Deep mutational scan, measured.
Amino acid sequence: GIPATNLSRVAGLEKQLAIELKVKQGAENMIQTYSNGSTKDRKLLLTAQQMLQDSKTKIDIIRMQLRRALQ
């Protein structure tokens, strides 16, 4: 079985993952909103794209940590 310490770690990672998935969803929504907007929305679009990139990276890292914890 999986050690108890790993189980609480997994629960924490799953919570983090859920949050990051919401951030990713929000960033994707912002990108959709701003991509057909005016030029003043360009900065917001770039910010949203950066957020999305960061979020995807975090999600990958969390998933990797989850896999390790579940081994």
Rank of each mutant, 00 (worst) to 15 (best):
K43Q: 11
I2F: 11
L66H: 01
K24F: 09
M30C: 09
K22M: 10
I59A: 02
I19V: 08
M64H: 10
S55R: 01
L46A: 11
I2L: 09
E14A: 14
N36K: 10
Q49T: 06
A27N: 02
L44S: 04
Q16L: 11
N6Q: 08
K15G: 03
A4V: 14
N6V: 08
S55P: 00
K40H: 12
G12I: 15
Q50Y: 04
A48N: 01
R63F: 08
L17Q: 00
G37K: 06
R68W: 12
K58Q: 05
R68S: 09
R63H: 05
Q49W: 14
D41W: 05
A18N: 06
Q65F: 05
K56C: 13
K58C: 06
Q49E: 05
Q65L: 15
Q71H: 10
K58S: 03
V23N: 14
L7W: 02
T39H: 08
I59N: 00
A11L: 10
L46D: 05
T47V: 14
G26A: 13
Q16H: 03
G1D: 10
T57D: 11
L46Y: 08
G1M: 08
L66E: 00
I2A: 12
R9T: 12
K24H: 06
L45G: 01
I2T: 10
I31E: 01
V10R: 04
Q50D: 03
Q49R: 12
T57C: 14
K58T: 03
R68T: 09
Y34V: 04
Q53D: 06
R63K: 08
R67I: 09
Q49G: 02
L66P: 00
T33G: 06
L52W: 08
R63Y: 11
I62P: 00
A27K: 01
L70A: 06
I31A: 02
I31V: 08
S8I: 09
L52M: 03
A4Y: 01
K43E: 12
S35L: 13
Q16R: 10
G26K: 15
S8Y: 05
S35V: 09
I19P: 00
T47P: 02
K22Q: 08
M30D: 10
L7N: 09
K43Y: 07
M30P: 00
K56G: 02
D41Q: 04
R9S: 10
L70H: 04
L17P: 00
Q71F: 06
L17M: 03
E28A: 04
L21N: 03
Q32G: 04
N29Y: 11
R42L: 13
L13E: 00
L52N: 00
R9P: 05
E20Y: 14
I19L: 12
L46R: 10
N29H: 14
G1R: 09
K24L: 14
Q65E: 12
Q71D: 12
K56W: 04
V10T: 03
V23A: 08
Q50S: 06
E20W: 15
G26H: 15
G12K: 15
A11K: 10
L46K: 08
N29P: 00
R63G: 02
